[in-house]
Design a protein around this nucleic acid. Structure first.
Length: 600
RNA sequence: GCACCCAUAGCUCAGCUGGAUAGAGCGUUGCCCUCCGAAGGCAAAGGUCGCACGUUCGAAUCGUGCUGGGUGCACCA
C-alpha cells in the first residue's frame, strides 16, 4: 500500500433492493412452475434448469418474451419438447401476469404479458428515478479498474482519450451494477523516460535563465515544458546551471513528473474523469515490493534462471543467448516464459508490473480490470499469468484492449503532425467537441474496433449524429414536461406515478414501455460483459423509439402527449414520457454525459 | 514463424455470451410534409454473416483448420 499516492474514495452502493427486471421476474415464474411440475411428477425430478432462459424474441410478432425451457429440458427429461411446452403453457396462463402462452416452432414458448405489467413498469421507473435499472450483479464486491496510465512525460493526447472514457464509463457502469469500484492510474515514473523528461526540463530551465536550450535528439521538445523550466528557475534560481547531471537529475525528475501529473489530472478533469487512486511505479523500487512479488512466485517454483530461445521467423541480427531470471508464465497460459531481470541484474519493466498487480491482489479486490491500448495486446497473457499465479487463480483479470481513434474533419483525415512536440492533445479534442460529445462518441463503438471521429460530424445537429439524436430526445421530453406543467398537469414524479396508467393502451405506447423495460436487463448484460458501449447503443434505440412515437402524434392526434381537456389521459401519457426521460438520464449518467434539457 | 484483435447489406457498424425469417444508420429508389409536435416522416430494395469442417434439437455466436487486414513479438518502458 505504500505506493499509493492518493487515497481511495470509498464508494459503497446502497444495493440490496431487488430491481424490477421483468425478464428475471418471468424467468423466476417459469422456474417455479417447472419445479411444481416436477413435484407433481409431470417432469422428472432433479432437472438442471440453469440453461432455461427467458429472452425477448427477435421478432416482436412472437410476443413479449420467449422461453427455451422445453427444448433445453427435452433431452434430460426424455420427453417431446412440444409436450413439455404445452404442459408448461397450460400452467403459466393461470398466472395473472401472463396474457397468452403459445407453443411455436420446435418448442419455443412465446409469452405475451398483461398490459398492466408494462404500465406498472412505468410506475416503477418513476418511483425509482435515477436508481431505475440499478442492478446487483456486483453484490458489493470490489473491482479495480486501471486505465489511462499514460507516461507522465507530457500532456494527454488523443490516443489516451478513448481509454479514459471507456475506463471511466465502465467504472460508472459497474458501480451502478452493485460493484464497489476503485478507479486507478498507474504512473510509469520508474523508467528511463522520466530521466529523459528531467533532461528535457533541464534545458527549459537553462532557457528560463536566458541560455540557449539544447533540445538534442531524443529529448522531449514540446512547449509544455517551458513552464516547467520557469518553475525550476523560480525554485532553484541559477544554482543548478553549471552542475553535472548527477547533482540535479533525481530532483528535477521528481519535480517535472509531479508537474506533468498535475497537467494530466487537469486534462482528465476536462473529460470529467476522476481517479480514486494514483499508484507510482517508482514507489515499488527500494521498498521490497518487487522482491516480495518475485519471491512469492519463486515459492511456487515459477521463477528460474534460464535462456530464452530466439523467436522463430523473425530475424534478429544482434541476438545473443543470455541467461537471466525468468517467470514461468507458460504454467499459466502464456506462450513463452518472460524475463523479469536483465542480464545485468536490474529489473525489467515487467517486474514492477508484477509487483503492482500483486499489490492490487493484496488489497483485496475481487476482480481486476486493465484498460490497455491495442498496441499492448502482447502483454495480456503474461499479465494474466502473473495475476493468476499470485492470486491462486482466485482473482480474475479482464483486460480490455482499446483500438485507435482516427480523426477526421468533414471526411478528410485530420493529420497529426509528426513533427515532434506537436500533436492533437486531449485538450484540443475537448475544446473543439466538448466533453459530453467526446465521451458519447468514444462509446459508439465496441472497444476493440477502430473508431472514426469527425470533428465536424460530431457537432452536426441531425439524425446522423447519435449524440444529437439522443440529446434531442431528452430535450423533447423536457419540452413536453414544461408544456404540460403550463397546462396545469402536476409533473412531479410522485404525481405521475400515481396517474391512472390504464389510459396507456395504444400499441405504440406499449412498445415505448417495453423498450424502457429493457433497461434493467441491459445494465445487467453490459456490466457482466464489461462493455459500456452497449449503453450508448441502447440509448440510441430508446431515443429512436421515442422519436417514432412523437412522429406518430403528427398524424394521430390521439397519440400526442398533452390531450387538451383530458387531464387524466394527459397525465398517463406524460408519465410515459417522463419514464423515458428517466431511462435516458440513467444511461447518460453511466456514459458520464450531461443530459441536454433544451436544444438551441 | 508465433501470439492477440478484427472480418456481418454498396459504406460505417450493432447483434442479448447458442435461439425462430440476421438488425440499425448512411447511401440508393419511391411516396408524403411547406395548415410547425417536420433541425423531416413513411416505405421498399439490398446478405453464401471471409472460407471449410465439427459440436447439437438449433451456430453470425462455441471448437479446429485455412484466407485476408491490423497489432505485437529477448537485457526498451
Amino acid at each position: 500500500m505504500t505506493c499509493l499516492l492518493g487515497s481511495g474514495i470509498p464508494k459503497r452502493n446502497e444495493t440490496g433492493n431487488d430491481q424490477m427486471n421483468l425478464f428475471a421476474e418471468i424467468r423466476t415464474l417459469v422456474i417455479e412452475t417447472l419445479n411444481a411440475m416436477a413435484a407433481e411428477g409431470i417432469l422428472p425430478a432433479g432437472l438442471e434448469l440453469s440453461q432455461v432462459a427467458v429472452e425477448p424474441p427477435r421478432d416482436a410478432a412472437h410476443g413479449d418474451m420467449a422461453t427455451n425451457a422445453a427444448m433445453v429440458l427435452a433431452k434430460p427429461a426424455a420427453m417431446q419438447p412440444r409436450a413439455i411446452a404445452e404442459a408448461l403453457a397450460a400452467r403459466l396462463i393461470a398466472d395473472p401476469r401472463v396474457a397468452s402462452a403459445d407453443v411455436a416452432g420446435p418448442g419455443f414458448l412465446n409469452l405475451r404479458l398483461a398490459t398492466s405489467l408494462w404500465q406498472d413498469l412505468i410506475k416503477m421507473a418513476l418511483t425509482q428515478g435515477a436508481a431505475f435499472g440499478r442492478a446487483n450483479v456486483g453484490a458489493g464486491r470490489r473491482v479495480n479498474v486501471e486505465f489511462v496510465s499514460a507516461n507522465p512525460t507530457g500532456p494527454m493526447h488523443v490516443g489516451h482519450v478513448r481509454g479514459a472514457v471507456v475506463g471511466d464509463a465502465l467504472a460508472r457502469l459497474l458501480a451502478f451494477s452493485g460493484w464497489d469500484v476503485t478507479r486507478e492510474y498507474y504512473i510509469n515514473d520508474g523508467g528511463a523516460q522520466v530521466d529523459v523528461l528531467a533532461r528535457s526540463a533541464y534545458e527549459r530551465y537553462r532557457e528560463a535563465n536566458g541560455l540557449e536550450p539544447e533540445i538534442r535528439e531524443g529529448l522531449y521538445p514540446g512547449d509544455y515544458l517551458i513552464p516547467v523550466g520557469e518553475a525550476l528557475k523560480a525554485k532553484y534560481g541559477e544554482t543548478l546551471l553549471d552542475k553535472d547531471e548527477q547533482f540535479w537529475l533525481a530532483e528535477i525528475r521528481d519535480f517535472a513528473t509531479e508537474m506533468m501529473m498535475q497537467m494530466i489530472r487537469d486534462d482528465l478533469a476536462q473529460l470529467n474523469v476522476t481517479m480514486d487512486v494514483y499508484s507510482s511505479e517508482k514507489a515499488l523500487y527500494g521498498t521490497g515490493q518487487i522482491e516480495a512479488a518475485i519471491q512469492a512466485l519463486r515459492e511456487m517454483d515459477l521463477i528460474y534462471e534460464g535462456t530464452l530461445e530466439p523467436p522463430k521467423g523473425k530475424t534478429l541480427e544482434d541476438w545473443e543467448p543470455r541467461e537471466q531470471m525468468l517467470f514461468r508464465s507458460t504454467a499459466h497460459g502464456d506462450d513463452v516464459d518472460r524475463p523479469v531481470q536483465k542480464s545485468d541484474g536490474s529489473w525489467t519493466y515487467f517486474a514492477p508490473d508484477i509487483a503492482y498487480h500483486y499489490n492490487k491482489v493484496q488489497r483485496g479486490f475481487d476482480e481486476l480490470i486493465d484498460i490497455f491500448g491495442a498496441d499492448h495486446g502482447g502483454y495480456v497473457k503474461r499479465m494474466k499469468a502473473a495475476v493468476s499465479a499470485l492470486s491462486n487463480g482466485k482473482v480474475p483479470l479482464d483486460i480490455k484492449l482499446v483500438q485507435l481513434v482516427k480523426l477526421y474533419k468533414n471526411g478528410e483525415p485530420f493529420k497529426m503532425s509528426k513533427r515532434a512536440g506537436t500533436f492533437v492533445t486531449l485538450r484540443d479534442v475537448v475544446e473543439q467537441a466538448g466533453a459530453d460529445v467526446t465521451r458519447f462518441m468514444m462509446l459508439t463503438r465496441k472497444n476493440d474496433v477502430t473508431l472514426d471521429f469527425d470533428f465536424a460530424k460530431v457537432l452536426d445537429q441531425s439524425k446522423d449524429n447519435p449524440v444529437f439524436y439522443v440529446q434531442y430526445a431528452n430535450a423533447r421530453i423536457n419540452s413536453v414536461l414544461r408544456k404540460s406543467q403550463d397546462a396545469g398537469i402536476d409533473c412531479s414524479d410522485a404525481a405521475l406515478a400515481a396517474a391512472d396508467l390504464s389510459h396507456l393502451n395504444h400499441p405504440a405506447e406499449i412498445e415505448m414501455a417495453k423498450k424502457i423495460a429493457e433497461w434493467p436487463r441491459l445494465v445487467e448484460i453490459a456490466s457482466k460483459a464489461n462493455e459500456p458501449h452497449r449503453v450508448a447503443f441502447y440509448l440510441y434505440e430508446l431515443a429512436s423509439e421515442f422519436h417514432g412515437l412523437w412522429n406518430k402524434g403528427n398524424d394521430d392526434t390521439s397519440l400526442r402527449f398533452i390531450q387538451e381537456g383530458n387531464a387524466a389521459t394527459s397525465a398517463a401519457k406524460v408519465a410515459l414520457v417522463r419514464a423515458t426521460g428517466v431511462a435516458i438520464s440513467a444511461g447518460l449518467a453511466i456514459l458520464g454525459v450531461t443530459p441536454v434539457v433544451e436544444m438551441r
